[in-house]
């Protein structure tokens, strides 16, 4: 990677960090509701992984998805508006924090049922082989997903059909609040892939370049038709599972120790400064630009209207059946609306 690309990795990680901190602030101000799972501490995984893929490679992720959306190049304005549930959001306010998506950027969405999206990613990879195109699929999950049935069902299927998919496990060492050693008999997660005869690798998820290199190798392999792989990225969450998590279950010393290895400062100090690729003035400028961008995203979200009520029934079906009303039965619309539960 050249200097410009390396600095871009740094900028992306800073953007995610600032964006997530601002999201937490907006959550506290009740601008954002429901679930909000922040990505602080794990930035190097998304940024490193996506920097090694083509823009048209398919991406499917878990619900801790803001970092992936920003690293894939979705506008921070649209991501913030989605967190607000506004019409300018990535899915017009329908999905919220856990379901950021942009099909035009081959980001097929964040998914909120643990492990539920692994078969979908496998199916997208099948479609790529069926259509004889050389796109590959990156499927991201937390290590908590590796105990559920769909994990094994999807890995078996992908390996059996030699499909071009990389299963990227972000091992942040807690499934919600349950420690790895409490929820999994196998604590070196990559080994689980070996049961399916799948190529498996482990990488330092706090090292953005290590993530880039690992994904680049696996992507080449998959693109050449050599089949799927599992990549375990060992990382750590700097905040709780979600904004609803008081985070009392993780030892304070462990958290502060992990924060000593911050993926952003490590990359800045150990790579960019060390190799004289960046100056302090540039670092300050990046910080300033990113903060301005995130402020603009908040302004955009605040200004974006709520979705119109008359769009509620839109898009339940791609092929709506003529004259069939939305509640399920064919009745004239005039008599139907009062029949909705809300109106008694």
């Amino acid at each position: 990677m050249n200097r410009e690309e390396l600095v871009s990795l740094y900028r992306q990680m800073v953007l995610i960090r600032v964006f997530e901190d601002k999201s937490a602030e907006m959550y506290a101000k009740a601008k954002i509701a429901g679930f909000l799972h922040l990505y602080n501490g794990q930035e190097a995984v998304a940024v490193g992984a996506l920097s090694a893929l083509r823009q048209d490679d398919d991406l499917v992720t878990h619900y801790r998805d803001h970092g992936y959306a920003l690293a894939r190049g979705l506008a921070s304005t649209a991501v913030m508006a989605e967190l607000y549930g506004r019409v300018g959001g990535t899915t017009g306010g329908r999905g919220g924090s856990m379901h950021i998506a942009d099909i035009s950027k081959h980001y097929w969405g964040g998914y909120a049922i643990v492990g539920g999206h692994l078969p979908l990613a496998t199916g997208l990879a099948y479609a790529n082989t069926h259509h004889k195109c050389d796109r590959i699929v990156l499927c991201v999950m937390g290590e908590g997903s590796t105990n559920i049935g769909t994990f094994h069902a999807a890995l078996n299927w992908a390996q059996l059909w030699k499909l071009p998919v990389i299963f990227l496990v972000e091992n942040n060492q807690y499934a919600m609040g349950t420690a790895l050693s409490v929820h999994s008999a196998v604590t070196e997660i990559y080994k689980k892939a070996l049961a399916h005869d799948m190529h498996a690798v482990r990488a330092d998820g706090k090292d953005v370049l290590a993530m880039h290199d690992a994904v680049a190798l696996l992507a080449d392999r998959a693109r050449r038709g050599e089949g799927p792989a599992l990549l375990e990225a060992v990382t750590y969450r700097f905040r709780g599972h979600s904004m609803a998590d008081s985070d009392v279950q993780r030892p304070k010393e462990e958290i502060s120790e992990q924060k000593m290895r911050d993926p952003i400062t490590m990359f800045l100090n150990d790579v960019l400064f060390k190799q004289n690729l960046i100056t302090q003035v540039e670092v300050d400028q990046i910080q300033k630009d990113v903060e301005a961008e995130v402020e603009a995203s908040v302004a955009f979200a605040d200004a974006s209207p709520e979705p119109a009520l008359d769009t509620l029934y839109n898009d339940i079906y791609a092929d709506p059946v003529d004259n069939i009303q939305i509640n399920g039965s064919l009745i004239k619309p005039a008599t139907v609306l009062p029949r909705n539960g809300k109106h008694g």
Binding site: D58, V60, W108, G116, L118, P119, L120, A121, T122, G123, L124, A125, Y126, A127, N128, H130, H131, G149, T150, A153, A154, N156, W157, L160
Partner: peptide, 22 residues
Amino acid sequence: TPIAEEAIVGVAIGAAMAGIRP
């Protein structure tokens, strides 16, 4: 396919999203 209905349906969903008609 394997006897794994969650994968049979789920893989079909993913394929369908990309234009296959499973």
